[in-house]
């Protein structure tokens, strides 16, 4: 049912990774992504694989959930791998007509494929172990320095969290409106693109009106509960680093050093 859609893809268990501060995880994800662009050597890939494997193990999330995210990028993966495979110049080891595969091509496309897969799996560990709320809180706190250059960090975070709350409601409402219009003979399926777009008007107008109405209501309710922006606000669940966060940061730094070491020192 539509109500059961969860945004992000949080997997509720109580693992080491789940208990980490979201800022630590954000930093870790960033470190991992940077490292993927630094590595260019089989040894470094082994280190990255080890790092990722231990993160998966620590998260206690079944591997299936991590891999599921790959479905979305299958196409991208195929394209980039084949481009690299067929178009990299170098020593040919296979030739069929004008198609040739080079040794360099195999190496680059393999690295490219692994890089993309790791990127997706790495970031899904983040979203699988962090609730959208924690993520928003983490982002707000981590990006707080942007406040100094007048970026409304709190407001953006609040918007994200409100969006998280209202998207399932609006999805359900869309379903209701569709049914109400279908009962009046509306057809949302047939016709060409232009016709289809035109057929959406009876769906979109009520949806927008309702969304605006909800927005006005919500603004009023927030004001009535003394909301006046981020200033002077306290937190019910303030982010606090624990000892495990310290240890984890240390691991991140060591990991980054190891990967960089392999690349620059050899």
């Amino acid at each position: 049912m539509l109500k059961d859609i969860t945004l992000g893809q949080y997997y509720p268990v109580d693992s080491f990774l789940h208990k980490l501060d979201p800022r630590t995880k954000l930093f870790g994800t960033m470190v991992f992504i940077i490292s993927l662009f630094v590595v260019n050597d089989i040894r470094a890939y082994l280190i990255a694989t080890l790092f990722l494997a231990s993160a998966i193990w620590l998260s206690q999330v079944p591997l299936f959930y991590m891999v599921r995210g790959l479905k979305a990028i299958v196409f991208l993966l195929l394209i980039s791998v084949s481009f690299n495979l067929f178009l990299t110049p170098g020593e040919a080891i296979f030739r069929l007509g004008f198609i040739k595969i080079t040794r360099e091509g195999i190496q680059i496309s393999a690295f490219m494929g692994v890089r993309l897969i790791y990127l997706v799996v790495g970031s899904s560990i983040m979203t699988l172990t962090t609730t959208p709320n924690q993520l928003t809180d983490g982002l707000e706190k981590s990006l707080n320095f942007l406040n100094k250059v007048r970026v409304p960090v709190h407001e953006v975070a609040m918007m994200m969290s409100i969006a998280l709350r209202f998207i399932p409601i609006l999805v359900e409402e869309t379903d209701k409106i569709m049914k109400a219009q279908m009962a009046r003979g509306a057809d949302f399926e047939s016709g060409n693109l232009i016709q289809k777009a035109k057929n959406m008007i009876p769906l979109l107008v009520p949806l927008f009106i309702s969304a605006f109405r909800r927005a006005t209501d919500l603004a009023m309710a927030m004001e009535a509960r003394c909301y006046r922006g981020g200033e002077g606000r306290t937190k019910m669940k303030p982010l606090r680093y624990g000892r495990r966060d310290g240890v984890t940061y240390l691991v991140f730094v060591l990991y980054l050093a190891a990967v960089a070491g392999v690349r620059f020192i050899g």
């Binding site: 609730t131 959208p132 709320n133 969290s161 409100i162 998280l164 709350r165 919500l218 309710a221 927030m222 509960r225 003394c226 909301y227 006046r228 606000r233 306290t234 937190k235 019910m236 669940k237």
Partner: peptide, 16 residues
């Protein structure tokens, strides 16, 4: 209701 979790919503007013 502003919060994504019941208790967080109840805490919204006092936070403000």
């Amino acid at each position: 209701i502003i919060g994504n979790i019941v208790e967080e919503d109840v805490g919204f007013g006092p936070e403000n």
